[in-house]
Design a protein around this nucleic acid. Sequence first.
RNA 1: GGACAUUUAGCUCAGCGGUAGAGCAUCACCUUCACACGGUGGGGGCCGCAGGUUCGAUCCCUGCAAUGUCCACCA
Length: 882
Amino acid sequence: MLDKNFDPKSFEDKFSFDIEASKRNPKGEPFMVLLPPPNVTGNLHIGHSLCYTLQDILARYKRLRGYDVLFQPGLDHAGIVTQLLVEKKLYSSGVERGSLTREKLLKEIWFWKENSGGMILKQMKKIGISCDFSRLRFTLDDKSKKAVTKMFVKLYNNGLLSRGQRMVNWDPLIGTAISDLEVIEKEVKGHLWHIKYFFEDDSGFIPVATSRPETLFGDVAVAVNPKDERYKHLVGKNVKIPLIDRLIPIIADKYADPKKGSGAVKITPAHDFNDFEVGKKHKLPVIDIFTPKAALNDTVPEMFRGMDRFEARNKVVELLEKMDLLVSVENVKQMLPFGDRSGVILEPRITYQWFVNAERLAKPAIKAVKDGKINFIPKHWENLYFEWLNNIRPWCVSRQIWWGHRIPAWYSSDGQVFVAETEEEARRQAIKFYGKNNVELTQDNDVLDTWFSSGMWPFVTLGWPEKNKDLSRYFSNMIVVTGFDIIFFWVARMIMMGIFALGKVPFKNVYIHGLVRDEKGNKMSKSKGNVIDPLTLCDQYGSDAVRYTLATLASPGRDLKMSSQLVETGRNFLTKLWNVVRFAQMNGCTYNQHFDINDVAHPINKWIIFEVKQMVRNVENALDNYRFDEAAKIIYQCLWNNFCDWYMEFIKPVLQQTSIDNSRVEGYNLSQTLLKKDVRDTVAWAIAQFIAVLYPITPFISKRLNGEFGIVDVKWPKIDDISGDYSESIKDVEILKEVITSVRSIRQFLRIPASEVLQAKLESQDIQVHDFIKDHRDIISRMCNVTFAETVEKSIPLVLNGAVLHVVIGDKVDIDSEIKRLTKESADCMKMRDAAMFRLNNTEFMKKASEEVVEEHKKRVSTLNSKIEKIEGVIRNLENVR
RNA sequence: GGACAUUUAGCUCAGCGGUAGAGCAUCACCUUCACACGGUGGGGGCCGCAGGUUCGAUCCCUGCAAUGUCCACCA
C-alpha cells in the first residue's frame, strides 16, 4: 500500500541508478542521444539539469516507442580549467609555483581526476539520467588519444592544419594562446592619452592618442590619413618616440581615421591586430616589448624592465606628465578583451601556433544545414550558425599548457617538423627526409584545444577510427540537445569534423534550449548570489518534480525563469498523482492485463478512455516535435482535470458500493457488480497510461507506482487498438458536467451552503439526454448535493445545451437579481450570436469562407438562439411572478 | 553599426486566420471518509503601437517602440 504521505525521498534513491533504464533494444531503429560531456571538474548546475533532463526524456520516450537508444555518457578533460584548478590546489598546499615538471604535474592531475573528478556523474544519476554508465568515456582516455592523434595527422596530411607565426589572443596569466571564441569583450572605463610626438628637428609635434601608452616602446610609425588636411604634409617626416627618442616615420594610411582620437595613430605591430596588418603592409619592423606574462622585456629602457604592463602604463604616464609630453587626457569607455577562463585582459601576441583551416571545413558544414540534412530546432538558430561559419577565421588549436592531447608533431634541431601518429613514424619520416641513419627529434610541447577532442565526440564515442557496428549504426542517427552558447564551440565543430572524418553528418537534429534564469529573469551568477542549485531542489521537492518543472518551462526559443515556487507546483502535481493511485488502490483497482478496452460499455468509462486516448496522441505529437512543455501540460490537464476532478468523482458511487449487487444497472445491460469490475479495470488502465506517458518525464514516481500497481513493465500506450464510437458517450458526459457545474454555480451565486440539499428537476426534449441524466442521478446528487423532485415551484431554471434544469430554492429566490443575472447571460449570448450572424449576412464571407466555417457559424447561431429563447422565456415567467 | 529573438490576465507563459487559454497569485465558500501539496465557484485581457493584406487579423506583411541576446568596431 502506498504511504499516505508522498515522500520522493522514500523511493528516488532506489531508482537513481537503474541499469534497466538504459537497456538497448537491438531490434529497434537506432537512435542516439549525444550527451554533451560535462567537464571533469564540473558540478551539476541548473543548466545541466535542463539539458540532461530534456535528453533523458527523449531517450526514455524513444525507448518506450521501441527504438534502440544509445545514450552514452562521458567526461571532458577541460584542459585549461582542470589544469588551473589542480595547480591552484597544489600551490595552496605549499608546492612552489612552477616547480613541477610536466610529468609530475600530469601525474598530479590524473590523481586528482581519479579521486575527485567526475562528481557530476553521481549528480546526474540523482536526477535520473538514464545513460549507459558502463560505456563511460573520457575525452583524454587511450581510445580518444588514438583518435585525436589520427585526426590531427589526417587534417595535416590534407593541408587543413598547419603551423604558422601569427598574431593570436594571448592569455598572460595562463601563458597560452586561446581561440577567438574564448575572448570575452567587456566594456571598461579607461583613458585616452594624447601624447606629443616631436619632430626629428624639434620644430613641433604631432599629437598621438592612445589608450595604451606603455606600448610606445614598440612603436614603429605614426599613421595619418592621406586625406587629412591637418597632417598630410607631414607624411615622410620622422618623429621621436617620447621617453626613448627612437625615430619613427609618419606614414599615410587609410586606416588612420581623422575622426578618431587625434587623427594620428601610433603603429605598434607586435601588440595590436590592426597595427600588425598596417605594419605588414608598410614593411615595418615588429618590436615585441612583452614577456609571455605581459611584463616588459629587455627591449625597453632598464627602469621599465620586468615591470607589469599596468604598472608600466602608470609609470609612462607619470613621466610623460613630468616632461610635459601630454596634450590632454580623455575619459573614455572602451571594449577590452578578457580571457573567459582567467578573467585577465588579453594581449595580442605574435607566436608560432597550429591553425586549422576552418574555412575549408566550414563549406560542407554550411551546405549540410542549407540542404536540410541537419535541422536546428528552433530553426532561427541556423542564422547564427551560418553567420559564424561564413566569417570563420583560422582556428588556433594549440595551447601552451600540459593537460590535454599533446600535439603529434616532432621537430628536428633545425626546426623541420614531422607530423605522425607515433614518434617512430615521425622518425622514419625524418630519416627519409634527411637521408641519415638517425635524427634527434623533440615533440611539440603544446597540447590541443579541448574543443578539438570535443568536436570529435560523436564518432570517438562510437569507437572511431575503428570501423565497427556501433559507428555505422548510430552515427548520423543522433540528436544533440544543447544551449545556444556552444553552437560555435561545439555543434559547428562536430559538424565540420564529422563530415571531414566520415563523409556524412553526425546528427540530424540539433535542439537548442534556452538559458535558465532566476525568477526575475536575471542570469544566475555566483556574484549575484541568485544561483538556484538543482540538487537542493531535488532534495526539497524530489528529482521528478524538478524534471517535470524543467520540462514545462522548456518552450522552444525562450529562456526559462526558474523558481522554487514552480517546482512546488510540479511537486503538487505528483502528489495528486500519488494520491489518486492510492485511492484507486484503496478501492481494489489493480492492473488487469486481460482487460479489453473495446468491451467497455458504460458511457462514463468510455468517456475517460477516449480522453486518455486523446491525451496519449497529443503527448506523442508533442514529444515527436520536441515540445516538452506541451507534453507535460497535456498530461497535467488530463490527469488532474478530466481524471481526478471529473472521472474519479463520477465513479465514486460505484466504487464505494460494498455488497454484491446483481441488479441491473439502469440503462445498461450489466449488473452493478460487473459495472464495478469494469470501473476498477478502467481506473487501473487509465492510471497505467498516465504512468507510462509520465515515465519519460518523471521516471522515479512512475517506477514506484508501477511496482505498487501490479504493472510488470512500463509500456507505451497502444492507442491504435482503441476503436469504436465514443461520440455519444462524450456528448452524454458533457451534459452531465454541465448540469453539475450549473448547480454548483447557482448555489454559490445564491450563497446556499453546500450542506443544504437542493431539489431539482430536469426537463429535456431530447430523450437521450433525459434518460442519461435520469440514469445518473446518483452522481449528480453526490456531486452537487441535490435530490430530484417533481415540483418546479419556487425554482429557478438553469438553461443548458438541450435541457433546462429547475432548481428549487424556495424563498431564497430574489427575483430581481435573478432577472438581472439571466439578462446578462442572454446579452452575452446575443453578442456572440450577432457576431456570427453578421458574418453570415456578409455576402463576401459566404462566398469566400470555407464550408466548414460557414457550417460552424450556422450551428453556433442556432444553438445560441435556442438558448437565448429559453432564457428570455424564463425571464418573462419571472416577470409575471413578480 | 549588423543580425536574431521577445512583447497576450497582477506574475510566468501557451495558443491560433473564424467565441482569448493554462499555471501561479487574487476573491468567496468548503476541514466532505484519495489529496488543504486539496475541493468548488468567481473576478481579471484595445493579444506593445501605427499602417497594410483579407469577407474576417492577437495570428500574415511593413514600419515603429521597448526589452534581451549574439556578432563586429573603437586611437
